[in-house]
Amino acid sequence: MTAADPADDVRLLGPADVRALAAELGLRPTKQWGQNFVIDANTVRKIVRLAGVGPGDSVVEVGPGLGSLTLPLLATAGHVTAVEVDPALAQRLPRTVADHAPARADRLEVVPADALTVTGLPDPQPTALVANLPYNVSVPVVLSFLERFPTLERVLVMVQLEVAQRLAAQPGSKVYGAPSAKAAWFAEVTLADRVGRNVFWPAPNVDSGLVSMVRRQPPSTTATRRGVFRVVDAAFAQRRKTLRAALAGVAGGAAPAEEALRAAGIDPQLRGERLTIGEFARIAEALGL
C-alpha cells in the first residue's frame, strides 16, 4: 500500500454514495457556500498522494462536505480536523466516517465553523492543510490559515484553475498579482496538477487546479508582514501605474515613494508585476512599515 491508497479498513465514497448522502440530507448544493462535491475516488487518492501526508501529520480539512476527501485522509494521516460551515454536513460527517472507516473514527474531530473566522483549532495542531476549497473563499482561506497556524508545513488545495494559476504565478507573468506575492511570503507555491470538471457533482463551469505550498521563512526584513502586504496591495491596486505613482498613497506622496524605492534598490518606473516578495519587503522596510 502506498500513501495514495486507502487502508483496507477505509471504504471511499463513490458517485452513488455521494448522491445517497445528499438525498438523505435533502441537500441541494448551494452557490452561496460553493459546494461542488467530489465523486471520483481516483481524484481524492491523487490529492492525498500529492499532499504527502503520513501517520505523523495532523491535517486540517476545510469544507469536508460529505466526506469524499476526509476518508482517504483518515487512511493516511494521524489525525484530521474538519472545519465545516454547513451545520447539517458537520453533524453527518462523523456518522459517515463511522460507517466507512470505523477503526479510524477516533482520528476525526469536526469543528462546525466558518473557516474565515476560525482563530484556533483543537490539538493536535495542524501540520498540513488539505482541502477542496469553495471557489469564492479559496485565497483568503489559504492565506489566513498560513498566517494563523504557524505549525502548518504544507498545503495542498483544489481550487478554480484560474485561482491556482494566480497563486502559483511568478513575477513577470500576466496573472501574477497580490495573491501570488502574498502566498510567496509564506511558502514555495507550485501548480501541482489540473483537474477536470467531471469529477464533481454538480459539475462546475470551470476546471480546477491543485496548488501545492511548502512553508518557508519569509523574506528577511525589519518590516512587518502587515506592512509588506500594504505595499503589495498598493502596487497592484492599479496595475498599470508605475511603482512611484502606485505607492504614493502609502508613502505620503510620489517623491517619498521614489526615495524609498531607490533606497530599496528598485527602479521607480517599474510596475508591481515585476517584483518578487523579497523586493516588496525591501520597499516596506525603506518605508518603515
Score class of each variant (00 low, 15 high):
P55V: 15
P55N: 12
P55L: 07
G56R: 05
D57C: 07
D57Y: 08
S58T: 10
S58I: 06
S58F: 03
S58C: 15
S58Q: 14
V59E: 09
V59D: 00
V60L: 06
V60S: 01
V60C: 08
V60W: 12
V60Y: 04
V60E: 08
V62Q: 00
V62I: 15
V62F: 00
V62M: 03
V62L: 00
V62K: 00
V62C: 00
V62T: 08
G63C: 13
P64H: 00
P64N: 01
G65N: 00
G65E: 05
L66P: 03
L66V: 15
G67Y: 02
G67H: 01
G67I: 05
S68F: 08
S68Q: 04
S68D: 10
S68T: 14
L69M: 09
L69S: 04
L69I: 03
T70A: 02
T70C: 07
L71P: 00
P72A: 07
L73P: 05
L73D: 02
L73G: 04
L74R: 06
L74D: 09
L74V: 13
L74I: 14
L74N: 05
A75L: 13
A75D: 07
A75Q: 12
T76M: 10
T76P: 08
T76G: 14
A77R: 08
A77D: 09
A77S: 06
G78T: 07
G78K: 05
G78P: 04
H79T: 10
H79Y: 02
H79I: 00
H79W: 10
H79E: 13
H79K: 15
H79V: 01
V80M: 05
T81N: 08
T81H: 13
T81F: 11
T81C: 11
A82D: 02
V83W: 02
V83I: 10
V83P: 01
V83H: 02
E84T: 11
E84C: 04
E84Y: 02
E84P: 07
V85R: 15
V85Q: 12
V85F: 09
V85W: 12
